[in-house]
Design a protein around this nucleic acid. Structure first.
Length: 210
DNA sequence: AAATACTGCAACCGCGTTGTA
DNA sequence: CTACAACGCGGTTGCAGTATT
């Protein structure tokens, strides 16, 4: 499968220029989303349909939040990831204004490094502590055994992508009422996920916080 | 001040799914 | 029913900016 007409033409790749953004935005405003291969051909952009769609969805689409993930959103991400795993697009549906790509990146950079404590793992802080310990050990003429233990502990940080550890769920589950609380915060959603989906995609929530 | 390591994010790639002729 | 194109998703990569040594 060639996919999106990628094979027959050498499309432009790399970062989008403001001019390209403008062209794409104008085209989508005029013709609407979808038919991305047509967008690629008709808009004057020398970009693949795939690339156009990605740029629109992740960057140009109206209603996108640009900025830091709030603690509340972080809570959502944790909880929803515990529910669905790496279903980033599904998770993104429950975070208005956030894209799957954004959530995915956020997860990888912030949570992948977390230990079982569920607290952020500051690598540099850890290294500092490790060095401090090492110094203390050396000063106290301690054996290398405990040091080795520290290092082992360091490497045992939970990694959701590590299949060997996939049975370990370091996050709060639905049982502890975390998720219902968060849902209440945002909107009186029903427990019916399909209904929620519909509600979101009707555009109702895209207008929040804008 | 320079070199190196780390972080965050935008964008690409490959593959599975869906729609249509 | 089949083949093909369009689409969407998750994983991965590349790079610029920042922090640390």
């Amino acid at each position: 499968m060639a996919g999106w007409g990628v094979s027959e033409q050498s499309w432009r790749k790399g970062p989008w220029s403001p001019e390209e953004d403008k062209l794409l935005t104008q085209y989508v405003r005029l013709h609407g989303e979808g038919r991305w291969s047509c967008v690629a051909r008709s808009s004057g952009l020398n970009r693949s349909g795939k690339s156009c769609r990605l740029r629109w969805v992740n960057y140009l689409r109206p209603g996108l939040k640009r900025g830091h993930i709030t603690p509340q959103e972080e809570g959502f991400i944790i909880e929803l990831h515990a529910l669905w795993g790496n279903k980033w697009s599904t998770i993104a549906r429950y975070l208005p204004g956030r894209t799957d790509n954004e959530i995915k990146n956020y997860w990888r950079t912030h949570f992948k490094k977390r230990g079982n404590s569920g607290k952020p793992c500051d690598k540099q802080e850890k290294n500092k502590n490790l060095r401090q310990k090492q110094q203390n050990q050396e000063e106290e003429n301690g054996s290398s055994n405990s040091m080795q233990e520290d290092i082992m502990t360091d490497e045992n940080i939970f990694d959701p992508t590590d299949k060997k550890q996939e049975t370990v769920i370091p996050y709060p589950t639905l049982d502890n009422q975390f998720l219902p609380m968060m849902f209440q915060d945002i909107t009186p959603w029903t427990s019916d996920c399909i209904a929620v989906d519909d509600y979101l995609w009707e555009g109702s929530l895209w207008n929040l916080d804008i």
